[in-house]
Design a protein around this nucleic acid. Structure first.
Length: 523
RNA sequence: GGCGGGGUAGCUCAGCGGUAGAGCAGGGGAAUCAUAAUCCCUUGGUCGGGGGUUCAAAUCCCUCCCCCGCUACCA
């Protein structure tokens, strides 16, 4: 049983047949921010991401490329690891469904389901379009004048039937509804929870969980003509990574059930309906939460391959830098909602929030210290009301952000953080240390000490979102490595007066249109 | 069609019974430590339309209009 200090967070495993796009980056990024925050806060974090490498499409793409499927996966899976490096993702593990540990876990959960009587043999049939490699429901089809049925895509369909194993999902309707009722936060945001509940209330059909039409996948134990079908194989990755089927293993006991499965809104059902049903049927605990985030549009347009406007995270980071991209994606919309990416909004955030508000705050404070305190942390005198108020706002900020992050309200946490950054800028202006330098050097030292503390604490809290810039700020305050988590927050980690500081350098540069033409598309 | 969410300042959104708020954008001013950054003041909304309940409604009820999501095997 996972203890309350542990925090196991996962991204979906990404289908290797796809190129990494902003949606993948976004999901992973949200997990990274949460994982970094929790780690800094002393939680025992396990952050998992990876790639889904099975299925007919992969099999075909590999064949088309003329290479073995495994080799194909090795190549394309690497694209996702490259994306992670690019965005400074701090995952603890990267799982691939082609790994032996995962084949073992998938077959083990299959056998557990079989023992529980949750699986039976039958046959899967439906209207299949060879061209689309997909099944369609009767009501999606149109009957042409030639008497042939066609899919919405225009592809001709034919009635096919193949033997298959089924999972008794229909038996889980009441237990799932009871689970949702008992755990109101199992699915967030609430609107997604409503959708799932209404879906389950509508009745559940048994689920086909094996296929014989392709080979690239996990063989069904004892029946290798059958391949485990996508979702059972894919979802199992979350327990593979913590050691399943060794439920007594150190990892499993520490981290299962998962704290949060982060998913896009398109795959909520698989995570909030099928997955808990699989787990409960296998005698395992369901995860504590499934959080579904929204989708991005690009300059108001839906992104699609045919429109050619899919945002490439590599191009994005190349243009704006990793910290600004991370910040923008986490800040510009309520987490859970859909958002729109635009160059204008991106630059507004980058320049307004990062460069002007935060970067410039650090720069002006550090420059004042450098020039007026001989480049050392000043020695504060007695604190006045304004000083206490400033430090007090900082002290209460950690608790507020903790509360928001607990519910994945990343935007609320950032809003709170930037409100205090604003307070710090106002404090600078109100105290005018540049004037005190001439009239009251002792008072100036106190003000600059409070401000240096403000920058230190703000950098600690900003680090999960903008790790590179925050670390550079802490470097400039000569904060030692062991002083960079929340144990050092507030009074516990005050700067030592007299500590020599390096020359300040700008953090969070403004976006320069000349260096990167504004007219150029981001994607 | 059914279920759910939403329509509040130019933009993104908060407020959800007590005579309209924030950030950004726009306008004016102050300051000059700083990445021409910062700070202060300010223009701007009959809170989608209509009806009702109430001493009092973005806030509750009814109705209409519009937008979005879900409505099963698609990563």
């Amino acid at each position: 049983m996972a203890n309350h200090k542990s925090f196991y967070i996962t991204t979906p495993i990404y289908y290797v047949n796809d190129k990494p796009h902003i949606g993948h980056a976004y999901t992973t990024l949200a997990c990274d921010v949460l994982a970094r925050f929790m780690r800094a806060d002393g939680r025992d974090v396990h952050f998992l991401t990876g790639t889904d490498e099975h299925g007919q499409k992969v099999e075909k793409s590999a064949a088309a490329a003329g290479i073995p499927a495994k080799q194909f996966c090795d190549q394309v899976s690497e694209n996702f690891r490259a994306m992670n490096r690019l965005l400074a993702i701090s995952n603890d593990d990267f799982i691939r469904t082609t790994e032996p540990r995962h084949v073992r876990a998938s077959q083990a959960i299959w056998q557990a389901l079989e023992r529980a009587g949750a699986i039976y043999r039958g046959s899967y049939s439906g209207w299949y379009a060879v061209r689309d490699e997909a099944y369609y429901a009767e009501d999606e089809l149109t009957l042409g004048p030639d008497g042939r049925r066609r899919a919405p895509s225009g592809a001709e369909v034919e009635w096919v039937e193949e033997p298959s194993h089924f999972f008794r999902l229909s038996a889980w309707q009441d237990r799932l509804l009871a689970h949702y009722a008992k755990h109101p936060d199992f699915i967030l945001p609430e609107s997604r929870r409503n959708e799932v509940i209404s879906f389950v209330r509508g009745g559940l059909k048994d689920l086909s969980i094996s296929r014989t039409s392709f080979r690239w996948g996990v063989p069904v134990p004892g029946e290798s003509a059958h391949i485990m079908y996508v979702w059972l194989d894919a979802l199992t990755n979350y327990i593979t990574a913590v050691g399943y089927p060794d439920v007594d293993s150190e990892l499993y006991r520490r981290y299962w059930p998962a704290t949060v499965h982060m998913v896009g809104k398109d795959i909520v059902r698989f995570h909030a309906v099928y997955w808990p049903a699989f787990l409960m049927a296998a005698g395992l605990q369901p995860p504590a939460r499934v959080f579904a985030h929204g989708w991005w549009t690009n300059e108001g347009q839906k992104m699609s391959k045919s429109l050619g406007n899919v945002i490439d995270p590599f191009a994005l980071v190349d243009r704006y830098g990793p910290d600004p991209v991370r910040y923008f994606l986490m800040r510009d919309l309520p987490f859970g909602n859909d958002g729109d990416f635009s160059h204008r909004a991106m630059v507004n955030r980058m320049n307004g929030d990062l460069a002007n508000d935060f970067g410039n705050l650090a720069q002006r404070v550090l420059s004042l210290v450098q020039r007026n305190c001989a480049g050392r942390v000043p020695l504060p005198g007695v604190l006045g009301d304004a000083d206490e108020a400033m430090l007090g706002m900082l002290d209460s900020l950690l608790g507020a952000m903790r509360h928001s992050f607990e519910r994945q309200e990343i935007h609320v946490a950032l809003n709170d953080l930037w409100r205090v950054i604003g307070e710090a800028n106002r404090y600078v202006d109100a105290q005018a240390p540049w004037t005190l330098a001439k009239t009251d050097p002792l008072r100036m030292a106190t003000v600059l000490y409070v401000l240096a503390e403000a920058v230190r604490n703000l950098a600690l809290l900003a680090a999960p979102v903008v790790p590179m810039g925050a670390q550079r700020m802490l470097d400039q305050l000569a904060v030692p490595a062991e002083g960079r988590d929340f144990r050092a927050y507030g009074a516990a980690g005050r700067l030592q007066p007299g500590t020599p500081l390096p020359k300040p350098l700008g953090v969070f540069p403004r976006f320069d249109a000349k260096a990167s033409p504004a007219g150029q598309a981001a994607g």
